[in-house]
Lab assay of single mutants.
Amino acid sequence: HDTTVHINGLRIEVHGASEEILKWIEEAARRGVEAEEIKRWVEEALK
């Protein structure tokens, strides 16, 4: 999927993410993980 995830006011563009990654992002956000940190993880995961 190409999608934009909104976390604590930060937009994260996610290209080619699976449902699993999207669920993981939402879970991390709920746990209060910094949005910048999530963004870094997602970029690494999608390389």
Rank of each mutant, 00 (worst) to 15 (best):
Thr3Val: 14
Val33Glu: 06
Val33Ile: 12
Val42Thr: 03
Ile38Pro: 00
Glu37Lys: 10
Leu22Ser: 01
Ile21Gly: 01
Val33Ala: 08
Val33Lys: 04
Glu27Thr: 06
His6Gln: 11
His6Leu: 09
Trp24Asp: 01
Glu36Ala: 12
Trp41Val: 12
Ala17Gln: 04
Glu37Gln: 12
Lys23Cys: 06
Glu19Met: 12
Lys47His: 11
Ile25Asn: 00
Glu13Met: 07
His6Glu: 15
Asp2Ile: 15
Gly32Ala: 04
Glu34Phe: 09
Gly9Met: 01
Ile25Pro: 00
Glu34Tyr: 08
Ala35Thr: 09
Ile21Asn: 02
Glu26Leu: 06
Val42Pro: 00
Ile7Trp: 00
Ala35Gly: 09
Trp24Val: 05
Glu36Asp: 11
Glu27His: 06
Ile25Met: 07
Glu13Ala: 08
Glu20Met: 09
Val5Ile: 15
Glu19Thr: 12
Val33Tyr: 08
Arg31Leu: 12
His1Cys: 08
Gly9Cys: 05
Thr3Gln: 13
Lys39Ile: 14
Ala28Trp: 07
Arg11Asp: 15
Trp24Asn: 02
Asn8Arg: 02
Trp24Tyr: 11
Ile38Thr: 01
Arg31Phe: 07
Leu10Val: 15
Leu22Arg: 06
Trp24Glu: 04
Ile7Glu: 06
Arg30Phe: 08
Arg30Asn: 13
Asn8Pro: 13
Trp41Asn: 02
Arg30Glu: 12
Thr3Lys: 15
Glu43Thr: 06
Ile21Pro: 00
Asn8Asp: 15
Ile12Tyr: 03
His6Val: 15
Glu19Tyr: 09
His15Tyr: 07
Lys47Ile: 11
Lys23Phe: 07
Ala17Ile: 07
Thr4Leu: 06
Gly16Cys: 06
Glu20Pro: 05
His6Arg: 09
Ala35Met: 09
Glu44Cys: 10
Ala28Gln: 09
Glu20Lys: 08
Val33Gly: 02
Glu27Pro: 00
Gly16Leu: 08
Gly32Trp: 03
Glu43Phe: 02
Ala35Asp: 05
Ala28Ile: 05
Ala17His: 04
His15Gly: 14
Leu46Ile: 12
Gly16Trp: 06
Val42His: 00
Leu22Met: 13
Asp2Arg: 15
Glu20Gly: 08
Leu46Val: 08
Glu13Tyr: 03
Leu10Thr: 15
Glu43Leu: 03
Trp24Pro: 00
Leu46Lys: 03
Ile21Gln: 05
Asn8Tyr: 00
Arg31Lys: 12
Ala29Gly: 06
Val14Cys: 04
Ala29Lys: 10
Glu44Tyr: 03
Lys39Ala: 11
Trp24Leu: 07
Ile25Arg: 00
Ala17Thr: 04
Arg31Ile: 10
Trp24His: 06
Val42Tyr: 05
Lys23Ile: 11
Glu34Cys: 07
Val14Arg: 00
Trp24Ser: 03
Ala45Thr: 12
His15Phe: 10
Ala35Phe: 14
Gly32Glu: 04
Trp41Arg: 09
Glu44Lys: 10
His1Ala: 13
Ala17Gly: 08
Lys39Val: 14
His6Tyr: 02
His15Cys: 09
Thr4Gln: 11
Trp41Phe: 13
Glu26His: 06
Glu44Gln: 13
Leu22Ile: 11
Leu10Ser: 11
Ile38Tyr: 00
Glu26Trp: 08
Gly9Pro: 01
Ser18Pro: 09
Ala29Phe: 14
Ser18Gly: 09
Thr4Gly: 12
Ile38Asn: 00
Asn8Glu: 15
Ser18Phe: 07
Trp41Thr: 08
Gly16Asp: 07
Ala45Gln: 13
Ser18Tyr: 05
Glu20Val: 10
Trp41Tyr: 14
Thr4Lys: 07
Lys23Ala: 13
Thr4Pro: 10
Gly9Leu: 01
Leu10Lys: 07
Glu13Ile: 13
Val42Met: 03
Leu22Gln: 03
Ala35Cys: 06
His1Lys: 13
Glu34Asp: 14
Ile21Ser: 01
Asp2His: 15
Lys47Phe: 03
Ala35Pro: 13
Glu26Gly: 03
Ile12Cys: 05
Val14Lys: 00
Arg11Gly: 15
Arg40Val: 04
His6Ser: 11
Ala28Met: 14
Lys39Asn: 06
His6Gly: 04
His6Lys: 10
Leu10Ile: 15
Leu46Arg: 03
Glu44Ser: 12
His6Thr: 15
Ile25Ala: 03
Ala45Trp: 14
Glu44Trp: 02
Gly9Asn: 08
His15Lys: 14
Asp2Ser: 15
Ile38Leu: 05
Glu13Phe: 03
Asn8His: 04
Glu36His: 12
Ile7Lys: 01
Trp41Asp: 01
Ile25Lys: 00
Ser18Thr: 14
Val14Asn: 01
Leu46Asp: 02
Asn8Val: 03
Glu13Lys: 09
Ala45Tyr: 13
Glu36Cys: 14
Arg30Ser: 13
Thr4Ala: 15
Glu37Met: 11
Glu44Leu: 09
Lys23Met: 12
Glu44Val: 10
Ser18Asp: 08
Glu34Trp: 07
Glu20Thr: 11
Gly16Ile: 05
His6Asn: 15
Leu46Cys: 08
Ser18Lys: 05
Leu22Gly: 02
Thr3Asn: 13
Gly9Ala: 03
Val14Gly: 03
Arg31Val: 09
Val5Ala: 04
Ala28His: 04
Thr4Arg: 05
His15Val: 13
Ala28Cys: 06
Val5Tyr: 00
Thr3Trp: 05
Lys23Asp: 09
Leu10Tyr: 01
Ala45Gly: 05
Lys47Leu: 11
Ala29Asp: 08
His1Gly: 11
Trp24Arg: 05
Lys23Gly: 07
His1Ser: 14
Gly16Arg: 03
Val42Cys: 02
Glu27Asp: 14
Ile38Gln: 01
Glu37Tyr: 10
Glu36Met: 09
Glu13Ser: 13
Arg11Glu: 15
Gly32Asn: 05
Ile12Asp: 02
Val42Asp: 00
Glu26Gln: 09
His1Thr: 13
Ala35Arg: 02
Ile25Tyr: 02
Ile12Asn: 02
Ile38Val: 04
Glu43Ser: 03
Glu20Asp: 11
Glu37Arg: 07
Val14Glu: 02
Gly32Val: 02
Thr4Glu: 11
Ala45Pro: 00
Ile7Ala: 03
Ile38Arg: 00
Ala28Lys: 02
Glu13Val: 14
Ile38Cys: 02
Ile12Gln: 02
Arg30Thr: 10
Ala28Glu: 04
Lys23Pro: 00
Ile7Ser: 01
Trp41Ala: 09
Glu34Ile: 10
Ile21Glu: 02
Glu19Asp: 12
Val33Cys: 09
Asp2Ala: 15
Ala29Leu: 15
Ala28Arg: 01
His15Ala: 14
Arg40Trp: 06
Trp41Gly: 03
Glu37Leu: 13
Glu19Gly: 09
Glu36Trp: 05
Ala35His: 08
Gly9Gln: 04
Leu22Phe: 08
Glu43Met: 03
Glu27Trp: 02
Glu19Phe: 10
Leu46Asn: 06
Asp2Thr: 15
